[in-house]
Design a binder for these strands. Structure first.
Lengths: 250, 250
DNA sequence: CGTATCCTTGAAGGACTTCAAATGTTGTGG
DNA sequence: CCACAACATTTGAAGTCCTTCAAGGATACG
């Protein structure tokens, strides 16, 4: 139970700032939230289907994903998570996990007890509203993926996903010019978008050939964001970022 | 602004009972919630993408769906809604709608102002929690659809959807033995599952030929629920119904 | 009873998958 | 710092599930 410096809480504060304008008082309360910090290796399951968590996990560093194992051994990835996200916040009100949550890269996680989260929300109702809002944005992202998998071809699907990840990472300050560190394999992209690895590969090569992206050694660079957005029919409204200007910026 | 008898509030109470056990006091508060009741024709848009609602819509009778229009004129349906649902509850915390909400059948809707909803939740925090929980279950349903569209073939997808609808309608008392009134066309099923109408038709015929269902004149009858669940890999956990026994019952 | 909507059927084509194998990259221990 | 294993990307070829196009029946409703 470490009560640490600002650094481990700052991704959470950056994330909350995308949801609401924090007062100094609220910022202080968040930065005093007791967290149990742990380093997790790549491909570690944080919570599993069937679990009944008594705490939630703040991703401080690294990359995570939600997924479900299918009957035939395949899997469906339902979301990717970046630092600042609390992917299992839903366990506050959904006692049994209906999916798995795991890391995709070596990660640092801060575990916060449900009790402490409840206390924070009681003391600061606007933060409680922001948490609810965050789970609703999660839902909006699921809907956007649904539209992609259901009605877009592989090219548009992949373009859309890359736009989303860039935009979300940019919103919490994780970009580097037009580049982001994306520790995703093509297999994972496929498992998220309902595509085979082989086909993801061919389409990614097409995106490269079209001059839209460079993607090498886990670093994705967008060379033509406008065209990538057009290709993926990407409209950032569904991310409901407080500062839409940030989201819209090329 | 009608303050009506129990009948118009009862679908909402039935729905809340699937989320929590209501006290008499809470039941009374819900049944006194001011609602503006309107009859809506088939295929009427209740709220549209870009709207900023100041009220939420309780579906009292009928059938509704959430959908998004795609660039090429096709659409993706993201959820179906049955009486008791408040499909745009998310507008409480997401000011701009990122999708459309419309009826699929002649429907009766009760419009409740955000103010009155907020007041109800302030006076009865457990009801507020139940509402949050309900929006989380919405999200769980999106994830389940994601898994279906991403990783299951048409046969399993359709079987899964039918299991879900039957289970949800059963939970609020809308079943009739093994039958439910399902005012969905095969085209709408296709738009929900990312399939063409033609293919939906062929697969539905297969489901009939396999003796799993009868589906005629908007009435769906499940002849072999166990087999239908197996075909769709359906596990009702994700619906997070308070009384799981209800959900599991054949 | 006519018209719109929905369901059904056949045939051809396409987007994506599967299988199989080669090439490239990363990390680890000697 | 090289060798080697494990993993990720890439390529080719064949096959499949589903789509598209086109048209004929059935059903519902004013």
């Amino acid at each position: 139970m470490t009560l640490e410096t600002q650094s481990i809480h700052s991704p959470m504060i950056a994330k909350l700032e995308t949801l609401m304008r924090l007062t100094d008082e609220e910022r202080r309360a968040v930065s005093e939230l007791p967290m149990n910090v742990r380093e997790l290796r790549e491909d570690h399951d944080i919570v599993r289907e069937g679990d009944r968590p008594s705490q939630a996990c703040l991703l401080i560093e690294g990359f995570a994903h939600r997924y479900q194992a299918m009957g035939d051994g395949r899997r469906q990835i339902m979301s990717f998570h970046v630092p600042g996200d609390i992917p299992d916040l839903l366990s506050l009100h959904l006692s049994v996990m209906d999916h798995n949550l795991g890391t995709l890269a070596p990660s640092k996680c801060g575990f916060i007890s449900h009790q402490n989260l409840q206390a924070l929300m009681r003391a600061h109702p606007r933060i409680g509203d922001a948490f609810w809002r965050d789970t609703l944005i999660d839902g909006a992202i699921f809907r956007a993926w649904l539209a992609g998998i259901g009605r877009r071809n592989a090219y548009a699907r992949i373009a859309h996903l890359l736009c989303e990840l860039i935009t979300r990472m940019r919103a919490v300050g994780l970009q580097n010019g037009n580049s982001v560190r994306l520790p995703l394999t093509q297999e994972e992209i496929g498992d998220a978008l309902g595509l085979s690895t082989v086909h993801v590969n061919r389409v990614v090569q097409q995106l490269r050939a079209d001059g839209l992206i460079t993607w090498h050694t886990k670093v994705l660079t967008v060379n033509d964001f406008e065209e990538l957005k057009r290709a993926g029919e990407f409209d950032p409204t569904y991310l409901h970022l407080r500062n839409q200007a940030v989201a819209a910026a090329a």
